[in-house]
């Protein structure tokens, strides 16, 4: 374990990249998912069809396959994406598809009467969504969304397979320098655990708050 303490600074720098990549992914994935979920429910037929295809295809693929497809595939059609961009794009598309389904389900679960009442008050589509539907859908969307966040943090570990400088890659680099990989993998696992445990605990806390409010 000495090898871990000697190199903890480098591991933490790797952890920072993982957190940045996760944040980028969660933010962009949630934005995509928000639009995607609304589009799935209220979009014109062709939009609905396209979104359904996107969501079902991405959800039917392993994340690793998506990452490889983008990392190796885009250069083959002439777009030279780097590992980080390929990883962020793949993870965002993946998160977007899953969040779309969450948003769709959340909005669907809001009682129809609420929407009718908002219509009666003269609210147009977007304000209706933003002020009436969404606040009521949020509590039911939170737990699965937290799950997606944890899955994305874990998912970032796959970008090591396309040489992105994340936590696992940092651990791998130290492992190659010291020729002693196992303690470093264990340390990386512990760091992932700490981050994800903190996220899921704060999610549970937020859930309780929301359910009382």
């Amino acid at each position: 374990m000495q090898v871990v303490w000697d190199n903890i600074g480098l591991l933490l720098i790797g952890l920072r990249s993982t957190l940045i990549l996760s944040a980028v992914t969660v933010v962009s994935g949630s934005a995509v998912g928000l639009l995607g979920g609304v589009g799935l429910l209220f979009g014109p037929l062709p939009v609905r069809g396209l979104l359904r295809a996107y969501v079902d295809i991405v959800r039917g693929l392993p994340l690793l396959v998506l990452i490889f497809f983008i990392f190796y595939g885009l250069p083959a059609i002439g777009l030279d994406v780097r590992g980080f961009e390929a990883g962020a794009l793949a993870l965002s598309l993946f998160a977007g598809a899953h969040v779309s389904e969450i948003v769709r389900g959340g909005i669907n679960a809001v009682p129809k009467g609420q929407i009718d009442a908002a219509k009666a008050l003269g609210l147009t589509f977007w304000p209706r969504l933003a002020w009436v539907v969404f606040p009521q859908a949020a509590p039911s969307m939170l737990p699965p969304w937290i799950n997606v966040v944890v899955e994305m943090v874990k998912g970032t570990s796959l970008v090591v397979l396309v040489s992105v400088n994340d936590l696992l890659f940092a651990a791998t680099k130290v492992a190659e320098r010291t020729a002693n990989p196992m303690p470093l993998y264990l340390a990386a696992a512990a760091l992932y655990f700490v981050v994800n445990f903190a996220i899921s605990r704060s999610g549970a806390w937020l859930e309780r708050r929301l359910s009382y409010g």
């Binding site: 570990s157 796959l158 696992l168 196992m182 993998y185 264990l186 992932y192 655990f193 445990f197 899921s200």
Partner: peptide
Amino acid sequence: VEALRNVPLLLLLFMIYFGLPI
């Protein structure tokens, strides 16, 4: 449950495949 759900599967596989025999 907490331990397994919060660690990437890839690392879990590394631990079983490489770590266990070591």
